[in-house]
Nucleic acid binder design. Sequence first.
DNA 1: CCTCAAATCGGATTTGTTCTGATTTAATCC
DNA 2: GGATTAAATCAGAACAAATCCGATTTGAGG
Lengths: 141, 141
Amino acid sequence: MKVEEALQILKDHGFKYTGKREEMIRICAAEKRYLSAKDIMERIKELYPSLSFDTVYRNISTFVELGILEETELDGEGKFRLACSTDGHHHHHVICTECGKTSSLPGCPMNIMSAVPDDFQVTGHKFEVYGTCKDCVAHTN
Amino acid sequence: MKVEEALQILKDHGFKYTGKREEMIRICAAEKRYLSAKDIMERIKELYPSLSFDTVYRNISTFVELGILEETELDGEGKFRLACSTDGHHHHHVICTECGKTSSLPGCPMNIMSAVPDDFQVTGHKFEVYGTCKDCVAHTN
DNA sequence: CCTCAAATCGGATTTGTTCTGATTTAATCC
DNA sequence: GGATTAAATCAGAACAAATCCGATTTGAGG
């Protein structure tokens, strides 16, 4: 997803444009990596030194609800990255547990889903591969 | 996994036997369901009314490290269930997001893993299907 | 039994996140 | 363009899950 698309989605849903929102999206768009709320805070401080965490958290959850950001959970805290599903097919990621960097995996093991017992109404699924990326392996040596 | 197996694992690793540990394992063994630390606390209060969180949390993480319990995260809190991988093949679950109830899925989409880029050293993976179980669907109607 | 490390207690503390009420600001309408 | 208004932001309090701490108890081995 591109920054402009994300801003359009916000507009289409009647949300106001603010420089802070755009900057948050830009920060997420800048890296193929999951960022924590704290990471985003840190980066946004350059442009908006007095941004409160409330704003960051509230905007993040708006973005997640609108499908602008994807969420996962690492080390007991929420991590976020710009959604990329709209770029093409539904797919999943390998995630570096050290730095959050991601890489796409082709396809989705949805075929298994046909084996889900009838007494469950499926609402979603998560498939994530965890690992250590080249850079982080190097660092720990 | 059976309660006796779990206790044996503890013994083999030089951990002491305590009634509280056994009871925690029994509680988890009693249901094919993910329980939160709070759930476990509640249930154990019948036998041990004055158990402290610390004990529950510390024991839970010991159990997870030893592979006695499996961990996941729902609604921003850790949930746990007795590991069942040792019962047979490596597999995954459908999880009811309302009550934590689980049902097994056959196989694992590890075949996709061959597509993981070389610059990632894989350490683990998670595949979970989420849904609402029959009972919980009925409840919300 | 005695000893000692491990386990537990109880409460304080930390950390990530959400809430609240007051203030500011972007979009709309005259 | 200026007034209006609902949304966005702020600052800090409040919250909940989880961890840490020093003091006390307890299981296992000698």
